[in-house]
């Protein structure tokens, strides 16, 4: 009984105790500053070009990055697709082969670019023999440039 009474008294005493809260003099907090910048780029590709008769090399303009704000681990890829043949407008079986080359004379298939100002000069090459073997008439072809955003 004594022990029970002592226990009850102890519990009552503890229950009535209080603590005072003081305002701390110094405290810290963190905040995040963020901004999200989406990738943007502008690439120009060669326009239509007219190849003069018997010209073995004709400038085909340039692929050029006009503006670029891309992720550091990404690049802009430009691929060229062409069947390499100018077709006669009357008879499609009559063709003049051609090649598109870069400024170093290598056949151009694709290239990657990173920043504004990156460019590749292109030219159209037709051999003298192919000119000599060509039938009269108008010839044309369409090349396709595909621009994509790729990992480096």
């Amino acid at each position: 009984m004594k022990k029970l009474f002592a226990l009850i008294l102890t519990v009552v005493m503890i229950a009535t105790m209080s603590t005072t809260a003081f305002a701390a003099n110094t405290t810290e907090g963190e905040a995040d500053i963020t901004t999200s910048i989406a990738p943007t780029y502008t690439v120009t590709i060669p326009a239509d070009v007219n190849v003069q008769f018997n010209a073995t090399e004709t400038s085909f303009g340039a692929i050029e990055v006009e503006a670029s704000q891309i992720h550091p681990d990404k690049c802009i890829k430009v691929e060229l697709t062409s069947d390499g043949k100018l077709e006669n407008s009357i008879d499609a079986t009559k063709v003049i082969p051609y090649a598109i080359k870069d400024s170093e004379g290598a056949a151009f298939a694709s290239a990657t670019y990173l920043t504004e100002g990156d460019k590749t000069e292109l030219s159209i090459h037709i051999t003298a023999n192919d000119w000599n073997a060509a039938y009269a008439g108008d010839y044309s072809d369409t090349v396709t440039f595909t621009v994509s955003y790729e990992d480096k």
Binding site: E30, I33, T34, T35, S36, I37, P39, Q69, H71, P72
Partner: peptide, 8 residues
């Protein structure tokens, strides 16, 4: 460069 920028 593009990207998600952050500082604390």
């Amino acid at each position: 460069y593009a990207g998600e920028y952050k500082d604390t």
